[in-house]
Structures are given as C-alpha cells and as structure tokens.
Amino acid sequence: MKNYLMTYKKDFIIIAAFAIFAATYNFYTPAFGSTVLSNFESAFFEMIAFIPLMFILIGLFEVWVPRELIERHIGTESGARGSVWVILLAMLQVGPLYGAFPVAFLLWRKGASTRNIFIYLGAFTTMKIPMLSFEIGFLGWRFSLMRTLLSLPVFIIIAVIMEKLFERDFEIYEINKGK
C-alpha cells in the first residue's frame, strides 16, 4: 500500500488538490467549478465500471494465451510466413512501445529478418489485442476495424523501407536489458 502511494505520488497529490477544489469551488468560482466537476463526473462514472471488467478480460487473456507456441516459429520461418508469426506474437502483447525493443532484440538474435523486426514493432504499436479491446469499447467497432486495416499496410511498407535502407548494417544492441 505504501509502495503504491509512493509510486503514484504525483497523481495522488493532484487528486487530493482536486478533491479540495471540488469541496471549495463554490466559494470563489462556482460557475467554472461546476463545469469542471460535471466534465469530470460524466467521464469518470461512465468509465469506472467499464475498465475493471476489461482488465479482468486482459488478465485472463494473459494467463491463457500460448505465447511460447508462437515464439517457436519466430526466425525459423522467413518471408511472408515469418511476418504472419511476428504479427501474431505482437498482437498477444501488452505494454508500451519501449517494452517492445527488448523483444525486437531477441527476435533479431533468433534470426528474424530486418523486415520482420519492423513488422513486429508496427503490429506491436497498432494491433495488440488487449489494446484493441479498449479501442472497440471506447471508440466503437467501425473505427477500430478501419484504423487497424489501414495501419497494417502502412507499417508493412515502413518495414520494407527500413529493410531497404538498413539491411546490410542492421544491428540491435543489448542495452537497457533487465530494466
């Protein structure tokens, strides 16, 4: 608990300040304050019931997904087939982009092509299933499907360009490991 408070110290200070504002705004800025509060309430209560359910789904997803099964195929299959495997692997991940770099390093060491490494990064950023579930929940099927379908060719083209540019001297360094 203490750890939790410390990790999010900045956030809790802001939340505490906001609570004080919510309790006192009536005395100095009633009109502005009530706009702020109604903005906050409408967003907060709409989402707070929704988000824990999504995270339970993501947690179940985390324990059931057979990542090792897919990892076995990486590097051993080249070309388009290899691309499909790295996209699948990327779709099963959770987390921010910088979390993908160490995985990219491992893929590179396992012999994945330059193109497939950048396809992995592209799919990691735009097609992670836990992220898509959030996207569908908040922005709707239509938006999510369209954005994903448009992203796919874009990051594949980026990967092809990166391969053309860097194929001969491409290298990933193993720094920041274990961070």
Partner: peptide, 29 residues
Amino acid sequence: LGVKMGLKMFMNLLPPFVTVLIILSFVLA
C-alpha cells in the same frame, strides 16, 4: 491468477487515469 493480474493492472492504471481526467476536465472548461 488472471483476475489478480487484471485487477493489479487496473490499480496501476487508476491514479494516472484519474489525473488525466482531472486535467482534461479543466482544459475542457
């Protein structure tokens, strides 16, 4: 284990999430 993991992720999201909503509420106002 999965439920625990999910709830833990939720708890880790909650403080920054509320902060972002607070800032957004002010900006919109």
